[in-house]
């Protein structure tokens, strides 16, 4: 069996492994939900939603403020570019 066929065989297994892991995760989560009951699970669910929302806005904030190699943020760099353009047009 050559390296190529081993690679292909492994690649063919990846979706199944992934599907298995996801299915297992969902079953465990459903089982825990049944053990907790709707009220406790409800609070747990709200905490997950809050975590998602918080992370989303944190990342959106970081997108506008990540530093480049000169230590400037994206906003600062855009402002500098605007000023250089203005200067060049004078």
């Amino acid at each position: 069996m050559g390296t190529e066929s081993v690679t292909r065989a492994l690649l063919n297994w990846v979706p199944w492994v992934l599907a298995g892991l996801v299915a297992l995760g969902i079953i465990i989560s459903a089982f825990k939900g049944a053990r907790r009951g709707i009220f406790r699970q409800g609070i747990r669910f709200v905490s997950v939603v809050l975590a998602v929302v918080l992370c989303f806005f944190l990342v959106r904030w970081a997108q506008g403020n990540y530093p480049d190699y000169q230590g400037m943020t994206m906003g600062e760099a855009a402002e500098q570019a605007r000023l250089s353009e203005q200067y060049a047009s004078l």
């Binding site: 989560s29 053990r35 009951g37 709707i38 669910f45 997950v48």
Partner: peptide
């Protein structure tokens, strides 16, 4: 419990 299970599955 059944409702908790459904919500748990959705969360999963």
């Amino acid at each position: 419990r059944l409702l908790g299970m459904a919500l748990g599955a959705i969360q999963g």
